[in-house]
């Protein structure tokens, strides 16, 4: 797909998942799924809340172990790495947590500087330059002296993004990057994700249920539901899907194969307390 990369002998897929199964408390979250994430592209993973999108990112990051199957990142099987091997691999991955996960006792500036101070021997003035560049990219250079509890949810997520790209990772995983963003910062964020991906040659994985926004920038989409991949393809392919389920999900319709209501007895009967 990307000739220049293949010429350098790098395999085309940065993440490859084979026959993955994972359960939590007897509930099967993933039931024998396989998927490939191509290098240098923006891949979106979508699905309703609670299907395990965050869990999938944690499995890729090696924070939790799969019950069955194999996850390879950069040709290394995550399950078989030692702790130090895993840490070395994680330096090449950035992850943007749903909540931001900023360190609450450090300022915005120190949060972004944190991975640089931990993993590099740069001087403070070089760190300062890098931190200000990353903060400028997310539009929060002026907020450098604020503490995380002074930020709105959307701002916190952008600071976390600046921190995630501080070490210039080769792959970055975004967990719900769009929730809580106003239309202006949403636009800026979409643009930023796209530019980061294209200019730095990053691989991006976006987990989201914001269908329209994600579809607008993704190169390839996987749709997860009930532990399975129910559909996959490029955005136009997904838009032309034959599946009623996917149509409903992408269109956000209340009516369709998925019910908005949790199973319940008849509404009128319930109100009149018939049949208790």
């Amino acid at each position: 797909m990307i000739p220049s990369m293949e010429k350098r002998g790098q395999p085309q897929n940065i993440v490859s998942i084979k026959n993955l199964s994972f359960s939590r408390h007897d509930r099967k979250i993933f039931d024998d799924i396989s998927l490939q994430i191509p290098r240098g592209k923006i891949t979106a993973i979508m699905g309703p809340s609670g299907t395990g999108k965050t869990t999938l990112l944690k499995l890729i990051g090696g924070q939790i172990k799969a019950d069955q199957g194999e996850i390879k990142v950069d040709e290394q099987a995550i399950g078989e790495l030692s702790l130090s091997g895993l840490y070395a691999l994680r330096k090449k991955m950035g992850m943007l947590f749903q909540s931001g996960a900023l360190l609450t006792d450090l300022t915005v500036y120190d949060n972004v500087a944190f991975p640089l101070r931990e993993h590099t021997r740069l001087t403070e003035s070089m760190i300062r330059t890098l931190v200000l560049m990353k903060l400028q990219a997310v539009g929060l250079r002026g907020a450098r002296d604020l503490m995380p509890n002074q930020l709105s949810g959307g701002m916190a997520r952008r600071v976390a993004l600046a921190r995630a790209i501080a070490l210039d990772p080769t792959m970055i995983m975004y967990d719900e990057p769009f929730t809580g963003q106003d239309p202006i910062s949403m636009g800026a964020l979409l643009h930023l994700i796209k530019t980061l991906n294209n200019t730095l040659g990053l691989t991006s994985i976006i987990v989201s249920h914001d269908v329209q926004e994600t579809a607008a920038i993704a190169d390839y989409i996987f749709i997860l539901a009930n532990g399975k991949i129910v559909d996959q393809g490029t955005p136009p392919q997904i838009a032309d899907t034959q599946s009623d389920w996917v149509k409903q999900f992408m269109g956000g319709d209340a009516d369709g194969p998925v019910r908005f209501h949790y199973p319940a007895p008849d509404y009128a009967d319930d109100l009149l307390m018939l049949g208790k």
Partner: peptide, 21 residues
């Protein structure tokens, strides 16, 4: 609370060992 707000997970993903740090 650091665990509940994913700060410990966040450190792990930044390749920093939260137990040692």
């Amino acid at each position: 609370l650091m665990k509940a707000t994913e700060q410990l997970s966040g450190m792990e993903m930044m390749a920093v060992d939260p137990i040692k740090r």
